[in-house]
Simulated scan of single mutants.
Amino acid sequence: MSTDFQQARLALGVRLRELRTEAGLSGRDLSSQLGWQASKVSRLENGKQTPSLSDLDAWVAAVGQPDSAAELRGRLQGLETRYRSWRRQLAAGHRPRQEAGITETNRSEVVRSFEAGVVPGMLQTADYARHVLSRYVDLRGTPRDIELAVNARMQRQAALYEGGRKFHLLMWEAALHVLLCPPDVLAGQLDRLIGLLGLSSVSLGIIPLGAPMTLAPGDGFSIYDDRLVISETWSAELWLDEPQEIALFSTIWEALNASAVYGHRAHRLIARARSSLDQA
């Protein structure tokens, strides 16, 4: 979780505590009035839990401050603009998230991305994407709209063939070997990567496993022009648009890129991974 997000959640908790104390209520009084466990009031006030809209509405009603509802909702919206839990993000399935990706891609002229354990989504085959998305549907228990999500991911790739856009994509060599899918599906994916190496809109860098690095590969992220970073964690997706945050991720991308190989050297790594599948 980002430090800025946590600081904002702490500030929201402080404001909730102010409203409670101004009403002359103890935490126990408020929890009893709302029918909550006392620990919930404490978690919200100490920035340990993100409130829902219904939590905020109940809070302002209980402390007799309905006019504060808009302020609190605004604070919460600011949090959720930055930090989107997968539970909320994927509540309606994977397709809406893929369509959001289409929107951001279409708004951008330059996209820089990094992935450590999977092939970047912009380069995935439909079969590979189907297996990857299935894994995360199973992990998070989200709606199984896999075919719709795969179709949306394939639509997003149309941007690769449109003029005026550049995609600078980095991946760790490990992603060429991770079997999130059957070997024949991974083989087809690697064949596609080789075919894309000559595409003018795509610059594909691969970081060899033994390459000297100044930073360890971490979570995947994408930088859209210099206006937005989307970074994925196991539990959430961060949408970051503050200049200093974008600058930080640009620095991270450049550090990773310094260890990457391109052209015939990237081709050699992909071909080696492809050959290993034939020998298995």
Rank of each mutant, 00 (worst) to 15 (best):
Y128T: 01
Y128F: 09
Y128S: 04
A129S: 06
A129Q: 09
A129M: 02
A129N: 03
R130C: 02
R130N: 00
H131P: 01
H131F: 11
H131V: 09
V132R: 12
V132N: 06
V132S: 07
L133H: 09
L133G: 04
L133F: 12
L133S: 07
S134P: 03
S134Q: 14
S134I: 02
R135I: 13
R135A: 13
R135C: 10
R135Q: 12
R135N: 10
R135L: 13
V137K: 10
V137F: 04
R140S: 12
R140Y: 14
R140M: 12
R140F: 13
T142M: 09
P143L: 04
P143N: 06
P143M: 05
P143C: 10
P143K: 10
D145Q: 10
I146K: 07
I146T: 06
L148V: 10
L148F: 09
L148A: 15
A149P: 00
A149N: 00
V150A: 03
V150F: 01
V150G: 03
V150K: 08
V150L: 01
N151F: 06
N151M: 11
N151A: 15
R153H: 05
R153N: 02
M154G: 05
Q155G: 10
Q155A: 14
Q155F: 10
Q157A: 03
A159Q: 00
A159Y: 08
L160K: 07
L160S: 02
Y161C: 06
Y161H: 15
Y161N: 11
E162L: 11
E162D: 00
G163C: 06
G164E: 05
R165T: 02
R165F: 07
R165K: 15
K166T: 14
K166I: 12
H168S: 08
H168W: 15
H168Y: 13
H168C: 08
L169V: 10
L169Y: 03
L170P: 00
M171N: 06
M171E: 04
M171W: 03
W172Y: 14
W172L: 14
E173T: 02
A174R: 09
A174P: 00
A174Q: 09
A174I: 03
A175Q: 08
A175L: 01
L176G: 07
V178I: 12
V178D: 11
L180R: 02
L180M: 10
C181T: 15
P182W: 04
P183Y: 06
P183W: 08
D184G: 07
D184V: 12
D184P: 12
D184R: 14
V185S: 00
V185Q: 04
V185R: 05
V185I: 09
L186S: 09
L186K: 13
A187F: 14
A187S: 15
A187R: 15
Q189E: 11
L190E: 04
L190G: 04
L190R: 08
D191G: 11
D191Y: 05
D191S: 11
R192H: 01
R192Q: 11
L193V: 04
L193Q: 05
L193I: 10
I194P: 02
I194M: 13
I194Y: 08
I194S: 09
I194D: 10
G195N: 05
G195E: 05
G195D: 03
L196E: 00
L197E: 03
G198Q: 03
S200T: 14
S201T: 12
S201F: 08
S201P: 01
